[in-house]
Design a protein around this nucleic acid. Structure first.
Lengths: 223, 223
DNA sequence: CTAATGCTTCGGCTAAGATCGAAGTATGAA
DNA sequence: TTCATACTTCGATCTTAGCCGAAGCATTAG
């Protein structure tokens, strides 16, 4: 049944990621859902059998997209009901609390702290959100130069945006991607504020005691 | 999450029953879903917490209805996706095959045979389906008098319709309820074509060898 | 060619939750 | 009052399905 397909948290996260309209590869979707590729593969084949998504083979990648606007419509309807009932997602996903706290999403920071950082940057007017894009403000440029020694001009890239909102699967809100997101994560690592977990393949990011303090000073919620 | 609420077969059946717009009691919904009252109680409280249904207390009954047309809309949307994918429900529900074959729904025949009977009666023009009601045709009256010794005039009841479509939860299609449905079931019993299972509380209906033949002669699908 | 990457299949583990029996509460009937 | 009905709560069982490790194609890069 269709509803049970959408009911699973991992699949729901995949579908939410696809709601953007873009087609995503199996591994991207696995990453978005916080599960291993083999688990994702199982989910994707179920979704395909259920007629919710369709694959497109391209080289050694498999791109998946929603089969139609009607699917998107129903998904949004479900989201609407969930919002009305006041319970946006019951925080499922990875069992590992560390993974929810901070992790790597491609090359930038995700998880609780990633979402918190973007929130804070918007609040501090370092980043401005226009209709469908985000950009660094003048104040934002000065901020990253002073606090993190990042040159805004060096972030420009022919094909990749500087700022990009990336849907955080565990938090269900956006965190910062783009070349800026990547540069910040890189700087965190260089400054030894944070480091990727040593376990091979792990996406967990561990903050040092000092790094956590510095992070809070820049992007803290003031609690 | 909302989708997982709808995803469970038992709950889906309850919600489908409520799609008619009528309010149904907890035990009616339990019966419709083919589960015990205590299981139903658990499901209903979850659906209520999820904001999909709302209760109305009346005496010692609790009537449940959908909370709004938006809920109905999303449910229909889901059903639409399921239909489009060509898989209407994967036949879940009661594990017991006998229960799916033939059972009592209140006082009339339900299950595979119940659905088959109504289908056949419509095909034979014994019952005519208008926009929102069903009625016995003249031919139908003669048929039940001749084949089952049922007097159509005796079926009239101040508050209960003669013919009524009742959604069959295992078949997902309608079977015949109303005073006619009850009278036919009663006659089947008197003729010893069928009998309710002796296990107390069981809703299974067992057809005799002879009864099955006679039933097939009247309402068979000709296979 | 070989090596690496993307994805799938298989098998076993585990946890979530559906189910029901038994017992408890509330309302109405006798 | 006492009994019956409608429903809920608690506790235990058990099935389902998500999950990952290991291994197996398939495709591309070198």
């Amino acid at each position: 049944m269709v509803a049970s397909l959408v009911g699973d948290p991992a699949r729901a996260n995949m579908l939410t990621a696809l709601l953007s309209g873009r087609a995503l590869t199996a591994s991207e979707l696995a990453q978005e859902a916080g599960i291993t590729p083999q688990t994702a593969s199982s989910h994707l084949s179920k979704l395909e059998t259920g007629g919710l998504i369709e694959p497109e083979k391209q080289g050694r990648h498999r791109y998946y997209r929603l089969t139609g606007t009607d699917v998107a419509g129903v998904l949004e309807g479900l989201a609407g009901l969930a919002a009305r009932a006041g319970h946006m997602r019951v925080r499922t996903g990875p069992k590992d609390p560390a993974l929810r706290r901070a992790r790597i999403c491609y090359d930038h920071l995700a998880g609780d702290l990633g979402v918190q950082m973007l929130d804070s940057m918007k609040k501090q007017r370092l980043i401005r959100q226009s209709k469908d894009a985000m950009e660094l403000t003048g104040e934002g440029k000065r901020f990253i130069a002073k606090a993190l020694q990042i040159d805004a001009d060096a972030l420009l890239h022919p094909r990749r945006p500087v700022c990009k909102a990336c849907l955080d699967w565990s938090e269900r809100r956006h965190h910062l991607a783009g070349t800026l997101g990547a540069a910040i994560m890189e700087r965190f690592t260089e400054l030894k504020w944070a480091a990727r977990d040593t376990t091979p393949g792990s996406r967990v990011v561990n903050f040092s005691r000092n790094g956590e303090k510095r992070f809070a000073a820049l992007f803290g919620t003031g609690e």
